[in-house]
Design a protein around this nucleic acid. Sequence first.
DNA 1: ATTCTTATTGCAAAAACTTGCAATAAGAAA
DNA 2: TTTCTTATTGCAAGTTTTTGCAATAAGAAT
Lengths: 145, 145
Amino acid sequence: MTHNTKDYGNLMRERGFRVTPQRQLILDVICASGNHTTPEAIYKRVQAKFPSVNLATIYRNLDFLCELRLVVATQIGRKMYYEIAGESPHHHLVCRNCNKIEQIDHTNMKTLFNKVEREQDFTVDMDHITLFGLCAKCRQKTRRV
Amino acid sequence: MTHNTKDYGNLMRERGFRVTPQRQLILDVICASGNHTTPEAIYKRVQAKFPSVNLATIYRNLDFLCELRLVVATQIGRKMYYEIAGESPHHHLVCRNCNKIEQIDHTNMKTLFNKVEREQDFTVDMDHITLFGLCAKCRQKTRRV
DNA sequence: ATTCTTATTGCAAAAACTTGCAATAAGAAA
DNA sequence: TTTCTTATTGCAAGTTTTTGCAATAAGAAT
Ligand SMILES: [Mn+2]
Ligand SMILES: [Mn+2]
Ligand SMILES: [Zn+2]
Ligand SMILES: [Zn+2]
């Protein structure tokens, strides 16, 4: 239950939720998978260790873990992807043409968030945003068509 | 077929696609609905005028119109919302607590996009982003708990 | 240890969305 | 106008995600 540096068990209990074997397994699997895993993939890996876990439980807990901010979600194309929420937020750039995924540092985002907070008195609070556009290579290709 | 200021018919034909009654109806309905409408609502309103249109056609065309950038989509909670892509891009702030929706001007976003383009050589190209966080009122409430 | 409360689960059914395919109809060409 | 090509549609089946509900089991209280 203690992955990376976080004690997930306590983070849940502190907030009044229960720590079930299903939740532990799902977290373990997402952790082990590294980056951007689909519900279906998570389900299969969970089942390999504990076949009786139901797919509905996977979906419910992915929602749950996202609400607790222990896991972050992204939609790319028509699929959802989940990954462990790291120590510090990170964001993505996805190329509409070649689907390459780059990262953006949080500091650039933070600058925007601060501006919005000053100007509109709204505290933006997102630790995993995906921005779409064109990577350097595809921009050149696309120009000359 | 000419809504607001855009001639949707030509925008489609120019790019090699066909202008079908279904597409016209769907655009009409989204236009008339004003802001942030769900596929189901669009389907019902289309059906009221033309009952034989199939739900699959609605979904396929919502995708299609988004790809052509005539329509923009957002996911809020677990629902998708569609609206006409206006003259100039606009973005939203959604409060996680009270679900109030505010707007952000594109200029603030553009500043971020420009920075990303300079620093990472990636052209961000989004005209409808939704950022989540806490509005002024909910921030105060939530503090004192 | 045992009892109690109720959050969480599995299951089955429902709802939401996607896809393959043959029939249809836009729109270009003749 | 008529013919021709093929993008688009409706339909039915498939896949993915959500939901209601009774049974289960975390974890607090005794
Ligand atoms: Mn990520
Ligand atoms: Mn909008
Ligand atoms: Zn690219
Ligand atoms: Zn609020």
